[in-house]
Design a protein around this nucleic acid. Structure first.
Length: 669
RNA sequence: GCCGGUGUAGCUCAGGGGUAGAGCGAGGGUCUCAUAAUCCCUAGGUCGUGGGUUCAAGUCCCACCGCCGGCACCA
């Protein structure tokens, strides 16, 4: 027994808890999970770490806005992360929270190691400070404006501890040169090198303006800089300062997977911190790109936050994973759209893999009573089966190579070449025709065996990306072995065992009606973005064209909590008279209404089309939520909401109207 | 502003001196085992613009335009 499995330690970022987990976090973690699964299949002893970074100014402030303690706030968001990873069934081995006691011990230890070597000193930070954003501003022009909020800045002098980053310039450059793949992709490496060549200033690694953090050892006025804290958690998570055996075994990390926005911290500060403490350096930092939405970065202020749950719950976890890995070239930015998601889903998963599995399994049932036909002796493989077998071998090599290079989209593309080749193979060999001729039973068996074999290759190779669907198909083929322990480099053609019973054909990826599914996903997203009963925290109509709550948006609502009259009075309800109503092209559930609410006529988009025709609504008196922040639905701006009862299992809307005549604009209380 | 990248079929992109490619979408046809799935055929695109080098340029050089990223303490 090989007890000396090589180890492979990889990390996602330790996510900052000032935001709820969204598609971006999900992407990184899904990539990490895919690599972890692949490496496990290849025989590595894999540890995948993720976690939450819970200290710092922004958390302190968000907690204050939510009216809870920072710890309570962090607990809530950290819980959301843990719950999401669980829902997505990610193979996470360790979860670290920076507010755990072991983290403080670890951070102190790493810091003191650096301090003992003389890399930490006390100094003064002096510069223009923005009180509102609580941050120092570059280019300390006295009286200059804050680039973030455009408010005047003040000159501030703060006592800080410093890290002698300036001493590491040469050592860092040497690292990047000697280990060219330390930073990937290459453009990122170039950026970092240019940055480091430009000279490094010492880094202040403590703050006195914040309370929420790990206290400086023996100087309680100071709190340790969040990045020093967060980066150290990669070590804490595997036992640094806590479990020496684990620590010795797994450190250094083979891979830190990050988003490009936090590259510098990982590629410059982190190795410097480790050099200072004389600890081994991680092997590789890989910075991936962002998901863009209509070419915009996802952000709360743009109101285009995208969450993974609606996709996972409508199309399945594997479909979400497939899309994320197939659509984005790893390392570059990618565009997310629901349309692209559904196109990929239908084309590749439903029509492609799902249909292929279904036709093969169905034919084995139909023609062989569900018992896998006997294998083909190598020598008698027909020409076409030989071609298919060699295609499978080729795809295997290519896909493995791509996985190793983290080129997931290429890996999947090549695996899908085998899907297409197998479909072609069936089209050419026509097993349904062979089945009609009793003399061709053996040939029929060969064809189906070869097709089943090819499918086995496909799902084994796709397993890191599609862990659930691949396992189901694996079992449908009568495999008793564990797909997760197949070595993708050594898949044997002909390894299927004949005579075993194949499972029932199951539709793993039912074709999705684009329009209907898209609307379902959108509705679920709205629900996550603006959970029912959450008063919008956005200032009334202050932000243009955005429906997302502003600061403190991470506030999750306490479910069904009682509210006081003062909360209710925040909602402005008015009588509205529907002046006109029309359908919106491409949307069959919502209508665009013009509603007279007294002093003005508002454009409101309402989800009433399933219950009412536009004609029915015109002239109706309705209840309007008048002070709702504007938002866009299907590209059409909506400035308010029509109150309606949700009836029946589908929640069909029934509008609320008045028994007696009321003037438009009258307030409800 | 400086540095780097990028601009190719409706969409996403590959191709880096020698008669323009793939996937998806769309149109037509085919089979019927299968999820109205599969398979086959159909893209004539000034390869951002203008110069240049060359027998020959998406492919090399120069300039310009558009877009993206980086240019330190924001996770």
């Amino acid at each position: 027994m090989p007890e000396t499995k090589p180890k492979y330690y990889l990390t996602t970022p330790i996510y900052y808890v000032n935001a709820r987990p969204h598609l971006g976090h999900t992407y990184t973690t899904v990539v990490a999970d895919t690599i972890a699964r692949f490496m496990r299949m290849c025989g590595y002893d894999v540890v995948l770490l993720t976690g939450t970074d819970e200290h710092g100014q922004k958390v302190e402030r968000a907690a204050k806005a939510a009216g809870v303690t920072p710890q309570a706030y962090a607990d809530r968001i950290a819980g959301e992360y843990e719950q999401l990873w669980k829902e997505l069934d990610l193979s996470i081995d360790r979860f670290i929270r920076t507010t755990e006691p072991r983290q403080e011990r670890a951070v102190h230890r790493l810091l003191l190691q650096a301090k003992d070597k003389g890399y930490i000193y006390k100094g003064f930070y002096e510069g223009q400070y923005c009180v509102f954003d609580e941050m120092y501003v570059d280019e300390p022009l006295p009286g200059g404006l804050c680039p973030e909020c455009k408010r005047p800045t003040e000159k501030v002098r703060e006592e800080n501890y410093y890290f002698k980053l300036s001493e590491f310039q040469d050592r860092l450059l040497k690292l990047y040169e000697e280990q060219p793949d330390f930073i990937q992709p290459e453009t990122r490496r170039n950026e970092v090198m240019a940055f480091v060549r430009g000279g490094l200033r010492d880094l202040s690694v403590s703050r006195t303006t914040i309370k929420w953090g790990i206290p400086w050892p023996d100087d309680e006025k100071h709190v340790i800089y969040v990045w020093y804290d967060a980066l150290t958690s990669y070590m804490t998570g595997i036992g640094y300062g806590d479990d020496e055996v684990q620590w010795e075994k797994y450190w250094p990390a083979e891979l830190h997977l990050i988003g490009k926005e936090i590259l510098r911290f990982h590629a410059v500060y982190w190795p410097a911190f480790l050099m200072a403490a004389e600890e081994p350096l991680p092997k590789k930092i890989f910075a991936h790109g962002w998901w863009l939405f209509a070419d915009e970065k996802m952000s709360k202020s743009r109101g285009n936050m995208q969450y993974p749950q609606p996709i996972a719950r409508t199309l399945g976890i594997d479909a979400l994973r497939y899309f994320l890995l197939r659509e984005m070239v790893f390392g570059q930015d990618g565009n997310f759209s629901r349309d692209a998601l559904l196109t990929r889903y239908n084309a590749d998963l439903a029509n492609g893999l799902g249909n292929l599995a279904s036709r093969i399994v169905a034919m084995i049932h139909q023609y062989f009573g569900g018992v896998l036909p006997p294998p083909v002796p190598e020598a008698s493989l027909s020409q076409i089966a030989v071609a298919l077998a060699s295609k499978a071998a080729e795809v295997q090599d290519v896909a493995v190579q791509y996985y190793e290079e983290f080129k997931f989209s290429d890996a999947l593309e090549s695996i899908w070449e085998l899907v297409a080749a197998t479909d072609q193979f069936l089209t050419e060999k026509k097993p349904w025709a062979l089945a009609k001729d009793p003399a061709k039973q053996a040939e029929l068996g060969e064809v189906l065996f070869a097709a089943a074999q090819s499918l086995r290759h496909i799902v084994a190779l796709a397993h890191p990306v599609l862990p659930h669907a691949s396992t189901k198909i694996w079992k449908q083929l009568g495999e008793r072995t564990d797909i997760a322990s197949q070595d993708p480099k050594h898949l044997a053609w002909g390894a299927l065992r004949p005579g075993t019973h194949v499972g029932e054909a199951e539709q793993l990826f039912p074709r999705a009606d684009k329009k209907e599914t898209s609307e379902r996903i959108e509705a679920m997203e709205d629900e996550i973005r603006n959970p029912a009963g959450t008063p919008s925290t956005a200032p009334p109509a202050a932000t243009p064209a955005a429906g997302a709550p502003a600061a403190g948006a991470a506030t999750a609502p306490a479910a069904n909590a009682k509210i006081g009259i003062e909360d209710f009075s925040k909602v402005e309800l008015r009588v509205g008279l529907v002046k006109s109503a029309e359908r919106i092209p491409g949307a069959d559930k919502i209508l665009k209404l013009m509603v007279d609410i007294g002093e003005e006529t508002r454009q409101i988009v309402a989800g009433l089309a399933v219950s009412y025709t536009p004609e029915e609504l015109v002239g109706k008196k309705v209840v309007v939520v008048a002070n709702l922040a504007p938002r866009k639905l299907r590209g059409v701006e909506s400035n308010g909401m029509i109150v309606a009862a949700a009836v029946g299992p589908e929640g069909k809307p029934v509008i609320c109207t008045f028994a007696e005549d009321v003037p438009p604009g009258a307030k409800l209380k």
